[in-house]
Design a protein around this nucleic acid. Structure first.
Lengths: 196, 196
DNA sequence: TAACAAACCAAGCAAGCGCTTGGTTGTCTT
DNA sequence: AAGACAACCAAGCGCTTGCTTGGTTTGTTA
């Protein structure tokens, strides 16, 4: 996966990274433009030289991460062998984004979706749909092969919810690393014994 | 389960119910005391006769629902027979609260936890811990009996996340009712074939 | 070295926020 | 009849918010 979503040498990217960090920690509404500015040593007014509005920061963060996740998921799926490996790739990509170097931006994408205006939500919707279309494809096959039992459309939501929720409790650096966490998620949706 | 958390005949309860409704729809920060007042035909200042602060509304809502859920979960578990039935009860109680008559308050409890001050979070923590202690007990037995595969502590978080996330996508009244949704969740964490 | 644009500062505006204040209304008890 | 109390209104205070404005610095190019 790409190590960084934002280039520290580009002022606007520094702004987006700071926004992601604070939006994740305090939420979009609770974060002031003054706090974002202070985070990168800027006065509150100065950041409107790089961005038209506070919401544009949120949108910029989401747009960036949604594109990157889609790329990485495609790469992960094409590298995976059987359906079970593809299932693991779905999980691993999401957990890696949620707890790796892109953790801030990914958490913001998942948890601050409602803070974005409906118009801008619509702009990102195609990327979101493409992402979950890949999920659906894998989950359909997984059920056809007897790996999973729940209906793919429902399972997709359950699994995504379970993974997104990890940002509230999972601490990277503890006893459980991301690979082990992925394996636990895989064990939940597709216990090894069920496969033929 | 108890049909209503708030008594429409008590002014303060009407206030809490209105708060829950708006907090769920727009989030705590985005909801103004003026909007809450308007919801029950009150001027913004008048509602401070019933409540000391806006946050006290949030706390009141959460306190109420957390106690009710704990009662209902205890009742549901004692009525259930084997471990699989107890597992179903865990799921059913949570989904019933999330999408039944207490949907507003429950969604607020799960999704606006961070909006509560740390001091008040601490007050509710004992109720929360008692609730999840019951979960843990059931999930431990489920694993001991071979019903589930993932570690109980992790599975608890995954499952709770999956269920809490339903408030973003599940629409009661559609083709899938709450019982069917519960069955899907159960199928995900404990596929029938695995049991001995 | 002059010109120019990107990047930033200093100051503040208009609007909205949670909450306070002082007073009025209606109901119930004694 | 009179007191007590809950419930509410009308008005607005002090503060914070996102964002604007006009001007200054800095670095690059011609």
């Amino acid at each position: 996966m790409r190590a960084e979503l934002f280039d520290p040498d580009i002022p606007r990217d520094r702004l987006l990274a700071a926004g992601a960090r604070l939006f994740r920690r305090q939420g979009f509404r609770a974060t002031t433009v003054r706090a974002i500015g202070a985070e990168i040593g800027l006065l509150s007014g100065s950041l409107f030289h790089h961005v038209r509005s506070k919401e544009e920061i949120l949108f910029g963060v989401m747009e960036r991460v949604i594109g990157a996740m889609l790329d990485d998921l495609r790469a992960g799926l094409s590298a995976a062998g059987d359906t079970r490996a593809r299932l693991r790739a779905l999980i691993a990509v999401e957990l890696t984004y949620l707890h790796g170097p892109c953790a801030d931006a990914t958490a913001v994408l998942f948890h601050e979706w409602r803070a974005l205006s409906p118009e801008r939500q619509a702009v990102l919707l195609s990327g979101r749909e493409a992402y979950f279309a890949l999920w659906h494809e894998v989950l359909e096959r997984a059920r056809a092969e007897g790996l999973t039992r729940a209906e793919p459309a429902v399972l997709r939501q359950f699994l995504h919810g379970a993974l997104a929720w990890t940002s509230f409790w999972y601490q990277p650096g503890g006893a459980l690393d991301i690979d082990a966490l992925s394996e636990q998620a895989l064990a939940m949706v597709a216990p090894p014994e069920v496969s033929p």
